[in-house]
Every structure is written in structure tokens, then in C-alpha cells.
Design a protein around this nucleic acid. Sequence first.
DNA 1: TAGAAAAAACTACAAATGTAGTAGAAGGCA
DNA 2: TGCCTTCTACTACATTTGTAGTTTTTTCTA
Lengths: 127, 127
Amino acid sequence: MKSPPTFKPTRLELELLSALWKIGSGSIREIQESLPEDRRPEYTTVQTIIYRLEEKGAVRRAKKIGNAHIFEPLVNRQSTFATLIDDFIGTLGGSHEPLVAHLVESGKISSAELKQMEKLLKERRAK
Amino acid sequence: MKSPPTFKPTRLELELLSALWKIGSGSIREIQESLPEDRRPEYTTVQTIIYRLEEKGAVRRAKKIGNAHIFEPLVNRQSTFATLIDDFIGTLGGSHEPLVAHLVESGKISSAELKQMEKLLKERRAK
DNA sequence: TAGAAAAAACTACAAATGTAGTAGAAGGCA
DNA sequence: TGCCTTCTACTACATTTGTAGTTTTTTCTA
């Protein structure tokens, strides 16, 4: 399967991808064991999801060690997050306003953070 | 069905809820016809989703006009969005940082908007 | 080299979601 | 009052997703 320009993983797919991004690459077993104990699916569940990610072109078998395949991600976190976020904004109606509003409203963003963002924005504009 | 304290609609459910929030209340037909032409499902599809929303306690039959039921939302946009956003941040790993970063990075937030947010934040803090 | 251990490969399956068809009841108009 | 229209109420069904069991193959290790 070809890897799509953008990839929108499901919840569980994202969890496994996140694990892979963290460890770089690994076997099914290693991926499974790198997951937080509190939500660590069975070995075969992880296997199924990794296979599906492979089907979808989001990971691939990089090599084989012993009898175990070592998987590595083919999509990177940045772009995957970007896809998810843009899609999400789409479901919220296409405007980021409610999102930003909620972040501010719920106190999830501090004033300092806003200032930081502003600075970042200015820098970006400058170049 | 009891309405839950928070409600996390699916994509289509959210579209129909959004339609309802806009028109206030309406029959299946009215809801369907208020949807943007480009993604307007069949009458019975709308009906099915509204019934499911009813099951889930997100809408209810307010009254009957002729032989048609008039539905009204039981959840409001604010809290529904809040639920969706918090859930989404959860899937992104629990931190809003990547989200905010992307918004700024992708130029989705303007400087003016940031200033606006800052003001909003200060006001909120003031009271 | 034979059996145990580990992984791969395959199969299964229920719930949720999107999508819509069909049958039958209710209302309005000629 | 008897159709025609419009709804309602039900049923159907493929796909996606989460979840995991079973069978087969590979590899070590005694």
C-alpha cells in the first residue's frame, strides 16, 4: 500500500504510532511493552493494529532480528498531528475560533503562553 | 435515555446538531433541508441519526405539528465543543501544546487574534 | 535433533457509524 | 370520504475499529 500524503490515524493507531515515534522502531513485542501499563492491549491486538498501519502505508518492516520483524514509522508526528488538527477544525465547522476560544476560556492557555505565541508569530512573519 | 453530562457526537451527529443549533428546532425535513446542499444526506439518513441522538439524550421531541415531530437539542454547542476539544487534546497526548503550536505555525492564528485572546484572558482574570 | 518458546499469520467478532430502503400510519385536499 | 403526500417506525447492511483467539512457522536450547 502506498503511503498517503496525509494520514489520519484512529485513536489506537495513534497510540501505537506515538509509541513508535518514541522508540524509533521496534518489534511488536517492544511496541506493546513500551505502552503505558494502564492501557496496554494484548500482544495480538497490537499486532493487528500494526498490520493495519502497514496496510495503510504508515509503517513498514525495516528488518528482521531473529524471527521478529522490526517496524518503523513512515509518517512523522508533525504531519500526522497537522492532519488530525486540520481535520478536527474541519469537524468543528472549519473555523479555529471556537477552539482557541475554548483553550483560553478553560484556562488551558496562560497569558505567558500567549505572549510566547505572539513572539513566535512575529518571528515567523519577519523571515 | 438520560442525557449525559457531556456528549461527544460523531461527525455526522455533530453536523445535524449544528443544524439544530442554528435553526433552534425543527422537523426531520427541516433539519435535512437546512444542511449545506453539498453534503446533505437522504431524509431517512437524517432521520436515523436524529433518532440515535434522541436515544443518546442529545435531542428530544418538543412537540408535534401536523404529523411531524419537532426536535430540539438538549445539549448546547458550548459544552459539546468543550467535550470534543478536551477529548481531542486527550488523543494528542493530553497536552495542548502541539495544538497551539500548529495553529501558530500554520498561520491559522493572526497576530491580531492573539492580541484579542490576550485581552480576553486579562478580562477573565480580572473578574 | 527434538521439544519449548516466541513470533507470525490468519481468523473472528461485536459495536459503532454512515447510509438508506420499505411498510404502514396520518393528514390534508379534491 | 377516499386518494396522494408526507411522516414515522423499522429494518438492513457494509465498513471501520477495537479487541483478541488459534494455528503455523521459526528459532533457540538442552
